[in-house]
Amino acid sequence: MKNSKTMTFYFIKTWLLIMIFSVLISGGLLYRLFEIQDETKSFWLIILSNLSFFFSLRFVFFLSISSVIIFLNNYESVRKNRFYSLATYCLIPFATLFYFMAGDLPMDESNFDILKSGWKFSAMLLLPHLIISFIAYLHFRKMLKSRKLQQD
């Protein structure tokens, strides 16, 4: 029972760290993208920029909440299989990034700048979460290998 509590506590800490860092990093990147503090904008453009920023940040927050599936690593069958374990950390952000990128491909390729800016926006939303999740996965595998997290 103690091992299960230790692993659950580890995943709670990891999940919270993924959420916090993902929201902070994506929020900083989005803040720069929307140029919230730009004083040359009109009043309505400032309101639209702020709304876009908060809706985008809300998406990052919900994406971070969806990383709750890392708790599936409490099951030995998932924990022992490296692919399943990696999927619990990175599948949702990777699939979402792939979906956004593939969804933009049917656009008119003659206007590559629009396509590139859409991919940049998607990357700002999703890549920080994906990278942080992958780092958390590598840390988890290292902890398992060094036996600091006892297996059942």
Rank of each mutant, 00 (worst) to 15 (best):
F61E: 01
P106Y: 04
L86H: 08
I70H: 00
F100M: 08
Y99N: 14
Q37S: 14
T6R: 14
L63W: 00
G103W: 00
E76C: 09
A136P: 04
S22I: 01
I47T: 14
M7L: 14
A87D: 05
S52F: 02
R141S: 07
R32K: 14
L115S: 12
F54W: 14
S49I: 05
M7W: 13
M19D: 00
Y137F: 12
L105D: 09
W44H: 10
L24C: 08
I132N: 01
A95L: 08
K148Q: 15
F55I: 07
D152I: 13
F34G: 00
N73C: 05
T14H: 05
S133E: 04
N73M: 04
L127N: 06
S146M: 13
F71Y: 06
L144V: 08
S66W: 02
F94D: 04
T14D: 05
S110Y: 10
K120H: 07
L51P: 05
I114H: 08
L45D: 12
S146K: 15
M7C: 11
I46V: 13
Y31F: 10
I46M: 10
H129M: 09
Y89A: 01
I65K: 02
I69F: 06
W44G: 10
K41C: 02
F61Q: 01
Y10I: 04
D104R: 11
S64G: 08
L33M: 13
F71D: 03
M143I: 09
L17M: 14
L115D: 09
D108K: 07
L127Q: 06
V23Y: 01
T40S: 15
F62R: 02
H139M: 15
F59V: 07
S42H: 12
S64R: 00
I47H: 13
P93C: 01
I46Y: 09
Y137D: 07
N73G: 05
F71W: 07
D113K: 15
F11E: 01
M19W: 03
M143S: 12
I65Y: 02
T14I: 08
T40R: 10
F94W: 09
Q151V: 15
Q151M: 14
T88L: 04
F11D: 02
F100D: 02
L72H: 05
A123K: 03
L86Q: 06
T96C: 10
M7K: 15
L105I: 12
K41W: 03
F34A: 04
N50Q: 12
L97E: 05
V60Q: 00
K120N: 11
R32Q: 12
L63Y: 00
S85R: 06
M107W: 09
G27C: 01
L138Q: 11
T96I: 10
M124I: 06
S66E: 03
G118N: 13
I12N: 03
L30D: 00
T88W: 03
F112H: 12
L16R: 02
G103L: 06
Y99G: 13
A123L: 07
G28F: 06
N73E: 02
D113W: 15
L63H: 01
E76W: 08
E39Y: 10
L45H: 10
S66D: 03
S42E: 13
Y31E: 06
I46A: 11
K2N: 14
